[in-house]
């Protein structure tokens, strides 16, 4: 067995990106599979693990879950000295970071989750979320811009306020993102838009085209809409099926318990009674 060399430990206050302290790492390599992007690597020469900055997205998963045998060898970046690219990467990748724009942990807005309160998605409209990099492939902001600019060119798309990607745009009319962020990589980033229902077909076709022809990563796509009663109709489903696009039998349902209701369009109780009739 080769004896591990000793290294001086690192001062945590000086760390700008996720780092493994070679002075603490005992080379057990238990941390390697925990990494969401394969950034935790083995240094054959020094017999310690290290984090590849080019691959790391600062999701903090290793810091929270790596079972280091020699003590906590993983040092998180000091938020007071990290550069803004690292900060963006962390904000988008670490689900426990509260994003300064949304004041929510996570990568997007409240979207349909609180729609009975906010009226964010109304009858006659649909919301579409395009999450670049998900699941688990990662994305840089240049990939995100491919979709955002294509959507902006349609002219009628509304980018969701308080969404981290919208906050990075130079101009919502063009969908272009600020130059400094384009090479920043994250586990995923979500573009959230609102469109009139009669434009949904063109919108989805545009997204599909960019995904098929230009994208170098993956995108998990979803469509949100209010359910039309009676009959539990989701007009967007008909459009999705007409375009022969996939949709899953499972998804999210907001069950309408929130208050105060500020949606001006009435939810007619007689429709509810008609729909609930015969349900045991």
């Amino acid at each position: 067995m080769v004896a591990k060399k000793t290294f001086p430990t690192i001062d945590p206050d000086t760390v700008k990106t996720m780092t493994i302290d070679p002075g603490i790492c005992r080379g057990c390599r238990e941390c390697e599979p925990v990494c969401t992007t394969g950034a935790l690597k083995w240094d054959e020469e020094r017999l310690v693990c290290f984090i590849d900055d080019e691959v790391c997205v600062n999701c903090f998963n290793c810091y929270r879950n790596a079972p280091c045998r020699g003590g906590v060898a993983i040092i998180p970046p000091n938020v007071d000295i990290m550069d803004k690219k690292t900060r963006l990467s962390m904000d988008l990748s670490n689900p426990l970071t509260e994003h300064p724009l949304t004041l929510m942990a996570g990568r997007g807005t409240e979207e349909c989750k609180t729609n009975e309160i906010t009226g964010r998605i109304r009858y006659g409209y649909a919301a579409v979320a395009v999450e670049l990099g998900r699941p688990s492939i990662t994305t840089d902001m240049r990939e995100v811009q491919k979709i955002s600019t294509a959507l902006a060119r349609l002219g009628y798309v509304t980018f969701a306020d308080e969404n981290p990607v919208t906050g990075l745009m130079k101009d919502k009319k063009t969908g272009e993102l600020q130059e400094w962020c384009l090479d920043t990589r994250a586990l995923s980033a979500i573009i959230e838009i609102g469109v009139p229902e009669d434009r949904l077909e063109e919108t989805l076709t545009t997204i599909r085209k960019v995904c098929d022809e230009e994208l170098e990563t993956v995108a998990s796509v979803s469509c949100m809409q209010m359910v039309v009663q009676p009959g539990d109709k989701i007009p967007a489903i008909e459009i999705i099926e007409k375009l022969r696009l996939p949709h899953r039998p499972n998804g999210k349902t907001c069950i309408g318990l929130g208050r105060p209701l500020n949606n001006p369009l009435p939810f007619d109780p007689s429709y509810a009674r008609a729909t609930l009739e015969g349900v045991n």
């Binding site: 729609n115 009975e116 796509v221 469509c223 359910v227 967007a236 998804g251 729909t275």
Partner: peptide, 24 residues
């Protein structure tokens, strides 16, 4: 939810994953 007198209000439908699905 209908059994307890509630109706679906708003839904999010997954349209699966597009783009470089060969990477998945």
């Amino acid at each position: 939810i209908k059994k307890v007198g509630l109706l679906p209000h708003t839904v999010a439908v997954s349209m699966e994953t597009w783009g470089r699905t060969d990477l998945l």
